[in-house]
Every structure is written in structure tokens, then in C-alpha cells.
Amino acid sequence: MTDPHILVVDDARDIREPLGAYLKKHGHRVSLAADAAAARETIGNGAIDLVVLDVMMPGEDGLSLCRWITGRGGPPVILLTAMADDADRIVGLELGADDYVVKPFNPRELLARIRAVLRRVPPTPATPPTGRRRFAAFVHDPNARTLRHRETEAVVDLTSAESRLLTVFLDRPRAVLTRDQLLDLTAGREAKPYDRAIDNQVSRLRRKIELDPKKPAIIVTEWGGGYRLAADVTADAEEEG
């Protein structure tokens, strides 16, 4: 599944459950936790893309949990804070929280904040395969940075940037990836805002894998969205044998 997975952590059931239902309605997978212990277990058991975290909770509070999440390189955190808690907001940001929303909040505003953070920090994929993978008529070898056509056995050399870009697509088959996500996943901190280099890289990669680069059928453009690998991906059976 490619829908972002959001963990809502709040001891108040009348906030936690309606917020979870609202986020599900708007296309997110959602897990709920009433306290820090349940949140730690959920984060440890599966891939969470973002945590919405209440600061004021009985037992371990949200700031302590935020410190634990960011300290282990966990998912981004949006804090829910009381209007008067300026100190909590400052401390939370110093601990590595990505944003905060003041209670009482408008769910639409929180949804907009979630989307903004996810655009900056793309969802963490499951650990991808490190060996050769098949897609369309090709086998990609990330270690050798090559593509081999399965029928003709022709080998295409890729630049390191092209191989890295292709790996990102193969990790997320059929998922729409925005330019910002592709930049973050291929260039990381070196990416510059409004950088159009990703379009040039996609064009070069298409010239190497598409029958007609002007009418791409493998890496397709999603107008207003980004790009999508329109092919299934499997491990190379020859390597497994």
C-alpha cells in the first residue's frame, strides 16, 4: 500500500477517534494510540510515515515521546499543543518536531500541515531488495548500474544518477511520485527548491528504456502529480536460483 500511514497519539478519545476517521476519509492509513507505550509499540511494529502527537498526556508526555522518536531517526512528528504552551512548542521544535498545531484545531488545517510535512519528508518505504529486479522487458542491477534487456540481452549502461532514479521507481511500483519526492529520494539534502533537474533525468532514462520516449509507457507522467512506474517489479529469478 502506498497511502501514507499516520499514527495519532492522544489520550483524549473524543479527539483521537474522530481525527483518525477524518484522516482515513482523506486517503490516509491510520493507527491510534492512547499513550506513549502504545505509540512505541506501533512504531516498532510497522512503517509509520508521520506521527500526530499530543503534548499533554498522563504518564510519559508527548515531549518525551517526541525525543525518543527523533532520537532513533523515526518518522516526522506534528505536535498538538495547548494555546498557552509556548514553551512546549519551542521545546518540541528543538527536540526535532517538524511542526505543531494549537488546540483546539481545525482538522482541515492539520490535514494541510500533514501533507506539507509529507511533501518535505517522503514516506519511508519498506526495506527494498538489494539485488537484481525485473520490470517490463528489463533487468536492473543496482550494483553494476546496468540494465539488461531480457530478450535481446543488450546491456545499457546507466549513470549513477540514472540508476539511483530508477531504483527509486522500482522501490515504489505504480505509485505516483512528485518531483519534490523524487528530488528528496535521489538528491537528499543537496536538492534545491524548484530544481527541474529531475525532469531532465527522467527524460534521459526514458530514452534508454522506452520504445518511444515521446510516448512513454513505462515511466509515465501524471499531470499535476509527477511520475509513475507503470510496471510490476519482481526479483530476478536467475539471481534467486
Rank of each mutant, 00 (worst) to 15 (best):
E41V: 06
K214D: 15
G20V: 07
E41I: 07
T81F: 12
E94K: 06
A84V: 13
R29N: 07
A12I: 13
D49V: 08
D141H: 03
D157N: 08
D98M: 14
H140C: 05
R174L: 02
R228G: 09
V176E: 13
D11G: 09
P122H: 06
I78P: 09
L211W: 00
R204D: 06
G188Y: 02
L229F: 01
I198W: 04
R13H: 01
W223P: 11
E238H: 11
L118E: 00
V117G: 01
I219M: 06
L158I: 01
A36K: 09
A126Q: 14
R174E: 11
R89L: 09
L80M: 10
H5M: 14
L80T: 01
G20C: 00
G20A: 00
V121S: 10
A235E: 15
L7S: 10
P107G: 02
D157F: 00
S203Y: 14
A137S: 13
V168C: 05
E151M: 14
S203R: 15
V91K: 09
I78T: 03
R72G: 13
H140A: 03
P104D: 00
L80A: 01
C66E: 04
T42N: 07
A175V: 12
A126E: 15
R16L: 14
L65C: 05
V55K: 07
R40K: 13
A235Y: 10
W68C: 14
R206E: 03
P216R: 06
P18A: 05
V102D: 13
N200L: 13
R196C: 03
L229S: 06
R204C: 07
A144R: 15
T178C: 07
D157G: 01
E153Y: 07
A144F: 01
S64R: 11
S160Q: 05
T127F: 14
K215G: 04
T178Y: 01
I90C: 07
V139T: 12
R207T: 12
V220I: 15
A191H: 05
K103W: 11
V51I: 05
I15C: 03
R189V: 11
I209H: 02
V156P: 01
L110Y: 11
R132F: 02
I6S: 00
R13D: 03
A235T: 15
R189W: 02
R189F: 06
H5F: 07
V117E: 04
G71W: 11
K214T: 15
L182F: 03
M1T: 10
H140W: 02
D180Y: 03
